[in-house]
């Protein structure tokens, strides 16, 4: 085999990767269509299309434009964000137990939200989300700062993971204390905890959009560096990668993505824990592909789970977090059993 004979193989691989990408995009497209048309009131596809392109103010138009569309958009955004954040987090920590809320993001958001309820009497969902986002960012920055102190070249993954777990436990303790003492906070908290993308409205979508877009851009920029890092710090440095910068960019991306998602949709960070384990067999160890695959798979899964939650328990709905766990986790376990797990 000569140098030129290697090239066709590489082309093959790239074609396969684009094929998987197309498949995931198609799955997401299907999920979006289902999410817009199915619900307490099913809308046929042509009507749904008309509602989107040429609304005339019928009941269907209102349902689709003011309820289904923002709900679907939020599902896509949160699923993308959590899948991508999970892949990044597991790559940086090289730990299969790392979920994107590991740096204290989820518990930071929870604590800030319940605090805003008892201290400031925050009422609207819109207000909670700002507080949740602020709490998530603060907690994550705190964890990273804790990990930074002392060592050169940035915090090690193990330090970060442990510091994050400790800070999360600390904040969770405080949150529990608050909700046990305040019934109103408890009532908000338990629904937030179950995770939902229902009844959020378009303003919430606009609210989290900039954070998630920024996070996605940073995440994709982070993937080549993450590939270098996965060969060990010395090799990565030898390849000209700035380790501290790579880690900082990764953490920032994870924080933006996860913070925005959990503030808007509740404690769904475990999506980011499961999804990369599902996509890793498709992508191999190359983060440039693993990260986008995980994002698309996360979005498709989240939407499908949400659609199922709308129809299984009429007239009510099951929270998306519950459905995701009930469907996604057994699927995940089956996959883990069937294949030799792809280690980090």
């Amino acid at each position: 085999m000569t140098a030129t004979a290697v090239a066709p193989r590489l082309h093959d691989l790239r074609r396969r990767r684009f094929l998987v990408l197309t498949g995931l995009l198609a799955a997401l497209g299907l999920a979006v269509v289902l999410s817009i048309t199915i619900g307490a009131k099913s809308v046929p596809l042509p009507d749904a299309w008309r509602a989107l392109t040429d609304p005339t103010g019928t009941e269907n138009d209102i349902v689709i434009r003011s309820l289904r569309l923002p709900r679907t958009a939020l599902g896509v955004l949160a699923g993308l964000a959590l899948g991508v954040a999970g892949a990044l987090m597991q790559g940086h920590t090289r730990n299969p137990l790392a979920d994107p809320g590991l740096l204290g993001v989820t518990q930071g958001a929870a604590f800030a939200m319940v605090s805003s309820i008892i201290l400031l009497g925050a009422q609207s969902l819109f207000a909670y989300i700002w507080f949740g986002l602020a709490g998530a960012l603060l907690a994550s920055v705190g964890v990273f700062a804790l990990g930074m102190v002392g060592g050169r070249g940035g915090p090690t993954p193990v330090t970060l993971a442990l510091a994050g777990t400790a800070v999360s436990a600390f904040l969770y303790g405080l949150t529990s204390a608050i909700v046990l003492l305040d019934e109103q906070a408890m009532d908000v908290f338990r629904f937030w905890q179950a995770g939902s993308i229902a009844a959020r409205g378009a303003d919430v979508v606009w609210q989290v959009l900039p954070f998630i877009v920024a996070g996605l851009v940073l995440a994709m920029a982070n993937t080549p560096g993450l590939n270098a890092l996965s060969l060990g710090e010395d090799v990565a440095r030898g390849l000209g990668q700035n380790i501290a910068l790579t880690r900082a960019v990764g953490v920032t991306a994870v924080t933006l993505l996860t913070g925005a998602s959990v503030a808007a949709c509740g404690a769904l960070a475990f999506v980011g824990l499961l999804v990369p384990h599902l996509t890793r067999p498709l992508s191999g160890t190359d983060h440039r592909w693993l990260v986008p695959y995980s994002g698309l798979a996360g979005a498709a899964l989240l939407l499908l789970a949400d659609v199922i939650g709308r129809v299984v328990a009429p007239p009510g709905e099951l929270e998306v977090g519950v459905v995701l766990a009930l469907i996604g986790a057994p699927f995940f376990v089956a996959l883990v059993r069937r294949r030799k797990p792809v280690r980090l």
Partner: peptide, 18 residues
Amino acid sequence: LVGIGVAAVFTNVKYWLL
């Protein structure tokens, strides 16, 4: 890995029950 999956189911069912 299996533990993660099972824990996710239990935890979320718990949240739902709450």
